[in-house]
Simulated scan of single mutants.
Amino acid sequence: MAYLFSYGTLQKKEVQLETFGRLLVGEKDILTGYKLKMVEITDPEVLRKSNQKYHPILNFSGDSEDEIEGLLFEVTEEEILQADEYEVDDYKRVETVFKSGKKGFMWVDKINLS
């Protein structure tokens, strides 16, 4: 089992059902050292699934005062790959440790990596 951190549209039930074929189970967690900004999505499939033109995206700040709340979902390795397909060109998957001490994957702005 792996962990996937969601701070945006992967928390939506409809997106989970479309992307993974099931509702994900998770708990609240916090990511430090990042800030959120918005990115315009142009991929038609992602727009259809999320019904949202602008999605949040993480930018590394390095400041321990910056915290992002989200949900840490338990997923399979296959579901991580399915999430990769959903998180389009602007995003890059990275692994990190969250405030809970758990290690998991998240998607960040590929231009502003830590």
Rank of each mutant, 00 (worst) to 15 (best):
M1P: 14
M1V: 15
Y3A: 09
Y3C: 09
Y3E: 09
L4V: 12
L4N: 11
L4C: 13
L4H: 12
Y7A: 10
G8C: 12
T9L: 14
L10P: 09
L10M: 15
L10N: 15
Q11G: 14
Q11N: 15
K12Y: 15
K13C: 11
V15E: 10
V15T: 12
Q16F: 11
L17R: 13
E18G: 10
F20S: 10
F20H: 12
G21C: 08
G21Q: 09
R22P: 09
L24K: 03
V25M: 13
V25T: 14
V25G: 06
V25L: 13
G26Q: 04
E27A: 12
K28S: 09
I30W: 09
T32N: 03
T32Q: 07
Y34S: 07
K35Q: 12
K35N: 08
L36I: 06
K37Q: 09
M38T: 15
M38K: 15
M38Y: 14
E40A: 07
I41D: 00
I41H: 01
I41L: 02
T42K: 10
T42V: 06
T42W: 01
P44A: 06
E45Y: 11
E45T: 10
E45K: 11
V46E: 00
V46N: 00
L47Q: 06
L47C: 05
R48C: 01
R48H: 03
R48E: 11
S50F: 00
S50T: 11
N51Y: 01
Q52K: 06
H55C: 05
I57Y: 00
I57D: 01
L58H: 04
N59Y: 05
F60T: 02
S61G: 06
G62I: 01
D63V: 02
E65M: 05
G70E: 01
L72V: 02
L72P: 02
L72C: 03
F73R: 02
F73P: 04
E74M: 06
V75F: 05
T76G: 06
T76D: 08
E77F: 07
E78Q: 07
E79Q: 12
E79R: 01
E79P: 01
E79C: 02
E79F: 02
L81H: 04
L81W: 01
L81R: 08
L81T: 08
D84F: 01
D84H: 01
E85P: 00
Y86S: 08
Y86I: 10
Y86E: 08
D89N: 15
D90Q: 14
Y91A: 08
Y91F: 15
Y91I: 07
K92Y: 03
K92C: 01
R93K: 15
V94D: 03
V94R: 05
E95K: 15
E95I: 14
E95W: 10
E95V: 14
T96H: 11
T96P: 07
V97D: 09
F98D: 07
F98L: 09
K99I: 11
K99P: 10
S100R: 11
G101K: 13
G101N: 12
G101R: 13
K102L: 14
K103R: 14
G104Y: 07
F105M: 10
F105V: 11
W107A: 11
W107P: 09
D109H: 06
D109T: 04
D109I: 05
I111V: 13
L113A: 04
S114E: 13
S114C: 04
